[in-house]
Nucleic acid binder design. Structure first.
Length: 282
DNA sequence: CCCCAGGTCAATT
DNA sequence: AATTGACATGGG
């Protein structure tokens, strides 16, 4: 458990002190777990998550949450950014392993977010056999078409109800190809309560994974992404093409046992490292 | 023209 | 249970 050092600098601005060593905005928001944050400068971002707008920026060793409230900070952003987890402690444990030590040195400021489950389900259905720029584009278009305008050019992620009302032409605009039928079917199953996303949180890992895989377009990898990035199951390890390469070359016996309870977080350091050093794993 | 992209599904052994 | 090809779209 990490004790947050907070400072209420202005009415709607909150400063989290001395956390940048375990929280880089660029590394956290651009490492392929979230697709909606807009980078305004090297160290500042804007976006909508959990239906709320946030302006967030690094200030030296601190992180400044702008245009928010203390209530939203405590009730929304602390969980979203996993601020009660001490990533320095986790990294110390991971660094016993020399491979992970290299990956962490490359991007020591990655945190694993706990995003909205519905948004995460849809986002990673879209992500299948797709590339990150196009995933981002499709999701943004979906929000413009079906989300609500929160402010200026910022839209919320649409609710299942809103997506249920989309027409064939609306989906055509998304250009997400054969994934359209998965989005439609998954939306219907959620609306008809064949799958209740709020119940998944209370299940054990395997039961939760099985339940998510009842949704069309959700296989083992997407399910693990949703469990890790949308529910905070830190032991869920999404095995995409990159992680398969890393594991085959560097961990033929699997991850070290003591790391398994936090395998998903370790995975995110490895994924980021592998994606930027692809030639090492051919 | 080819190949690939944070895979999934259905058919086939 | 494990393997194989199709699948929309856009970029290199």
């Amino acid at each position: 458990m990490l004790s947050l050092k907070l400072e209420n600098v202005n009415k709607n601005d909150i400063l989290v002190k001395d956390i940048v060593s375990q929280f880089s905005l660029a590394q956290t928001l651009l490492c392929g777990q979230a697709f909606r944050w807009v980078q305004l400068s090297e160290t500042s971002f804007c976006g909508v998550a959990m239906g709320k707008f946030l302006n967030i920026q690094e200030c030296g060793n601190d992180i400044l949450f702008k245009d928010t409230t203390m209530d939203d900070f405590n009730n929304v952003w602390v969980d979203y950014f996993d601020l009660n987890t001490d990533y320095e402690q986790l990294k110390d444990m991971f660094c016993q392993d020399t491979v992970l030590a290299d990956a962490i040195t490359y991007a020591p400021g990655i945190r694993v977010l706990k995003q909205d489950p519905w948004e995460t389900v849809c986002s990673f259905i879209i992500s299948a056999n797709n590339n990150i720029p196009r995933i981002t584009k499709i999701i943004e278009q979906l929000c413009v078409i079906a989300g609500e305008k929160v402010c200026d050019d910022y839209y919320s992620f649409p609710t299942p109800e809103s997506m249920f009302k989309l027409t064939e032409d609306d989906f055509g605009q998304l250009k997400c190809g054969y994934r359209t039928k998965y989005l439609k079917s998954t939306t219907t199953k959620i609306m008809e309560k064949q799958v209740a996303l709020e119940e998944v949180a209370s299940l054990d890992y395997l039961s939760a994974k099985k339940m998510l895989m009842l949704l069309d377009g959700v296989g083992p990898k997407v399910a693990d992404c949703v469990l890790l990035f949308g529910y905070g199951f830190k032991n869920a390890v999404p095995t995409d093409t990159w992680i398969k390469k890393v594991m085959a070359v560097l961990y033929p016996q699997g991850l070290p046992e003591e790391i398994l309870p936090y395998g998903g977080i370790a995975q995110q350091y490895l994924f980021h490292y592998a994606r930027h050093h692809g030639h090492l794993f051919e």
